[in-house]
């Protein structure tokens, strides 16, 4: 069966530093995979390459069997893969709904002009990530970190992805907010969304993923069921620095 996302021998060099060192892995349809590793292991660099924000030095990235390595970021997003960022990047002067509106737009100037915004879908997305009716006209400067992450999720979901890459979704959140985001991810898993999730919060990550991939210094050091990966000695060493 064709894999939603297939990474083959991915290498990324920044000058003398090899940030991604021959990484290969597949995501399974409807599965959720955790991508873990200490700071600087290369998790976000992998995300950036999958999305085309960085070009890999070598290797292939396939989306549903077709090579997307040469496509621009917007083109990849239109094929059904989307990501969130560690630091949310909202449109600062726009309301919650307007932020989501941008995600919902087709990449066609003609359609942007001739078709009005889909207000119902905007509201539906905003409410689905846990915003209340009162929040819809708020601008990002009045939102909490949790709300900004929810907004980032909503805008990402608006692009109608089949695969979502989530980068440190729990960073800077309160326990209540973590639960809210976790619930959202669980709901999307039921709808067969494929996830690749980066998180330092392994406890919060555990219930959300089926498998895990652990990396360190740009290399995969363990791969498999989440519980096995986090009990792997190499993984423990990479996090704690001791045996």
């Amino acid at each position: 069966m064709v894999k939603p996302l297939s990474i083959k021998n991915l290498v990324k060099n920044f000058g003398g530093l090899t940030a991604t060192d021959d990484i290969s892995f597949d995501l399974e349809e409807g599965q959720s995979t955790g991508l873990i590793g200490p700071n600087g292991a290369g998790k976000t660099t992998i995300f950036s390459q999958i999305m085309g924000e960085y070009r890999q030095t070598s290797g292939i990235i396939e989306l549903y069997g077709s090579d997307i390595s040469k496509l621009s970021t917007p083109a990849r997003i239109r094929l059904g893969i989307s990501r969130t960022y560690q630091v949310p990047r909202p449109f600062s002067d726009f309301s919650v709904l307007e932020n989501i509106r941008v995600g919902l737009m087709p990449d066609s100037i003609w359609k942007m002009i001739t078709q009005g915004p889909n207000r119902e879908r905007e509201i539906e997305l905003a409410l689905s990530v846990g915003f209340s009716e009162d929040d819809l006209q708020q601008t990002p400067d009045t939102l909490s970190m949790g709300d900004l992450r929810k907004l980032e999720m909503a805008r990402t979901m608006a692009t109608n992805p089949k695969i979502m890459l989530l980068d440190e979704v729990f960073a800077g959140l309160t326990v209540g907010e973590i639960n809210q985001i976790a619930k959202l991810i669980q709901n999307m898993r039921k709808e067969n969304m494929t996830f690749l999730i980066v998180s330092h919060d392994l406890k919060a990550l555990e219930p959300l993923v089926d498998d895990a991939i652990a990396i360190n210094y740009g290399k995969i050091i363990a791969q498999g069921a989440f519980s096995e990966v986090i009990s792997d000695s190499a993984v423990r060493t990479s996090y704690l620095g001791t045996e």
């Binding site: 989307s82 990047r89 449109f91 737009m105 942007m112 002009i113 001739t114 009005g116 915004p117 692009t159």
Partner: peptide, 21 residues
């Protein structure tokens, strides 16, 4: 129209415009 919104979005955050497809 939505085009106006999209053009304003470029001034606010061009990277996020890309990230919105």
């Amino acid at each position: 129209t939505r085009l106006g919104t999209a053009l304003s979005a470029i001034a606010l955050n061009e990277e996020s415009v890309k990230g919105s497809g």
